[in-house]
Write a protein that binds this DNA or RNA. Structure first.
Length: 629
DNA sequence: TTAGGGTTAG
């Protein structure tokens, strides 16, 4: 679609530039009822908005426009008003039409706004840059950004010159649709073609989009570009980048930017900036820095909000400090910040992970009595706890309750249930559920589902079925990753099929997969079980050559293999290596070592070394402590 | 006296 040349020179330049843009973006026609925006754009006989004489002669109906438009709370009222407006002679001003469209858009009736806009075009009613901006936003919100382009073209035909607001809406639309590359190209063209000078809002939009795709360098480059082009960043600009860095665990870089913002730019951080930083610090377990940040907020009289508190509640729960988390929830209530569904879910999950089901249920009941309706995530936590504790009957009752409440189980729900069923050996029920999730609820199994099923089958001595499912996965081109291979190697080995385990291990290099520490541990366990200690030792050397460092499991597996097979020559060396790497012996290795010492097959002088390898108890990891005032 | 971005938690 080419735009024909309009009257004034500025529009002429814009049209040229816009036509060049067409090469980069596909502009689809906007067909709904009987005409499209692309067709509209190519029409020539349209009334320019400024020639409408109605604007200075309003009737009584429109003398109080605010109250009139504030009353529009539903679709029917809007339509009725619109009909009256379009039938008036002369037509109401463009501002009135714009207000009506804006009222609908604020109510999220995007399609309705677009339809009215089309009817306006048919009248034709007056249109200006505000009107088109609103309708373009509607298209973008509906993920029809291409139609937004068509409206820009249509606007140009009517002398509406797109400005920074309109281009920003388009950029935001592309970002909403994850079309970041296209947004970047358009942004560059806007600058190069001097179509508009980006302002802080536009830079923020672009920065948000780039952060969304996991890029941190370009947003920082944009921040520098703002400086070059004389555009002042604001707290949103910095907070967006700070948050992105924190999510990528680059908290120190985020803190540098935070200091730059305050000290060099004189921009005050807000609760969002602090919440992002606190979140990043919590994830890295930097509790002292978290306390510092909270103190700083207090000094600056910035109150933590529900999100700040919820995040801290969640962090405490993940550290196992669930009672502290509950106490923090009481503090937030005292401060007038009501915990919401997310906050309650964290606390319930925290109790569930500790197996404190009575407390979890108490919180569950209290949230409901406060009118907060549990969602599928709430149920998943409870379900997981019941399954992990082999309380499959309770889990099944809960599963029924999810459906009774009209909630839709998700893939996590099914994975949890499958795990639970295999744990108690109910393979047939698991198989039925596996079929049901796909057939009845149209939920596709994910990589996790397959791992659970394969591991479940292996643990229940159904290695052959696991293998055939595994081969089926290969045909479906599902993730045949190293985790899946490791599960099967372990399963085959433990079910007395070491040959299959070895064949699978050898298959890895053909598939281009690299064994990880778990894979090596499992394979070494397989050799040891077979009495092939020499092969296990060789693998131990090989893994280091391949750049895979042994962990405490590796040493324990090898030690047990050596002890079982009465090969004592390398034991002292291994124990010394463990000591050097601060690794511990596990309970069964320890008892075997002690047994061999007492029977005299191991030298008693090793006892001192063994003592150093016993894990120390009772040392609580340092965690978050803060004196709330 | 009509338009755009607004960043933070499970």
């Amino acid at each position: 679609m080419m735009i024909k040349i309009p009257k004034n020179a500025a529009s002429f330049m814009l049209c040229n530039a816009f036509n060049k843009l067409q090469g980069t973006f596909t502009v689809h026609s906007f067909k709904t009822s009987n005409f499209s925006f692309s067709e509209l754009a190519s029409q020539t006989i349209l009334t320019p908005f400024h020639s409408n004489p109605a604007s200075n002669r309003e009737s009584l109906l429109f003398d109080h426009p605010r109250s009139m438009f504030e009353k529009i709370t539903n679709f029917d009222d809007a339509l009725k008003l619109f009909d009256e407006m379009t039938q008036r002679q002369p037509l109401p001003s463009v501002v009135k039409f714009t207000q009506l469209l804006q009222a609908l858009t604020k109510m999220k009736h995007y399609s309705c706004s677009i339809n009215l806009f089309k009817q306006m075009a048919a009248v034709p009613a007056p249109v200006n840059v505000y009107t088109t901006a609103i309708v373009i936003k509607c298209c973008c919100e509906l993920h029809y950004t291409n139609q937004g382009f068509a409206i820009v073209a249509y606007g140009l035909k009517r002398g509406v010159v797109p400005n920074v607001c309109i281009f920003n809406t388009i950029l935001n639309g592309l970002i909403l649709e994850d079309r970041i590359l296209e947004a970047e190209t358009l942004f560059k063209k806007l600058i190069k073609g001097k179509l508009c000078e980006p302002d802080v809002v536009m830079y923020n939009t672009m920065i948000k989009g780039l952060c969304k795709v996991g890029n941190n360098d370009t947003p920082i480059a944009l921040l520098r570009l703002m400086d070059e082009r004389g555009c002042e960043p604001n707290v949103t600009t910095y907070s967006t980048i700070i948050d992105s860095l924190c999510k990528d665990k680059m908290v120190d870089d985020a803190l540098k930017l935070f200091n730059e913002m305050i000290l060099h730019k004189g921009i005050l951080p807000n609760v969002v900036t602090y919440t992002s930083l606190i979140h990043g610090l919590c994830n890295l377990g930097r509790w002292e820095d978290v306390s510092k940040m909270l103190k700083e907020m207090e000094d600056k009289k910035i109150s933590p909000d529900v999100l700040t508190f919820s995040m801290l509640v969640d962090a405490l729960c993940k550290e196992g400090k669930v009672d502290d988390a509950k106490a923090l929830m009481n503090i937030m209530v005292k401060r007038g910040k009501d915990p919401n569904l997310v906050t309650y879910n964290s606390l319930i999950d925290g109790y569930c992970l500790r197996g404190e089901m009575r407390k979890a249920r108490e919180v569950f009941d209290s949230m409901r009595s406060r009118g907060i309706i549990p969602n599928v995530i709430t149920y998943n936590s409870l379900l997981n706890a019941y399954c992990k504790n082999s309380k499959i009957e309770k889990a099944m009752l809960l599963f029924d309750e999810i459906i009774e409440k009209g909630l839709k189980p998700n893939v996590v729900t099914y994975n949890t249930m499958l795990h639970g069923l295999y744990r108690v050996g109910r393979c047939k029920d698991a198989r039925e559920l596996f079929n049901e999730m796909q057939a009845h609820n149209r939920i596709s199994p994910d990589a996790c589902t397959y791992r659970i099923v394969l591991e479940g089958l292996c643990n229940n001595h159904q290695v052959d079925e696991a293998l055939s499912l595994f081969r089926l996965m290969g045909e479906n081109k599902l993730d045949l990753d190293i985790v899946v291979y490791t599960i099967l190697i372990d399963g085959a080995s433990k079910c007395g099929k070491p040959e299959i385990a070895k064949a699978l291990f050898n298959e890895l290099s053909i598939r281009g997969l690299h064994p990880n520490v778990r894979t090596y541990n499992v394979m070494m366990g397989c050799f040891c079980r077979e009495g092939l200690v020499k092969e296990a030792k060789e693998l131990f050397l090989q893994m280091e050559e391949m750049g895979c460092l042994p962990d405490h499991v590796t040493y324990n597996v090898l030690l047990q293999g050596l002890l079982k097979n009465e090969q004592h020559d390398t034991i002292e060396m291994l124990l010394k290596e463990m000591d050097g790497q601060y690794l511990s012996v596990d309970a069964s290795t320890l008892s075997m070592l002690l047994h061999h010492v007492s029977s005299g097959s191991l030298d008693g002088t090793l006892l001192k070394l063994i003592g150093k390898l016993v894990p120390k108890k009772g040392m609580d990891a340092p965690c978050f402590q803060y004196r709330w005032r």
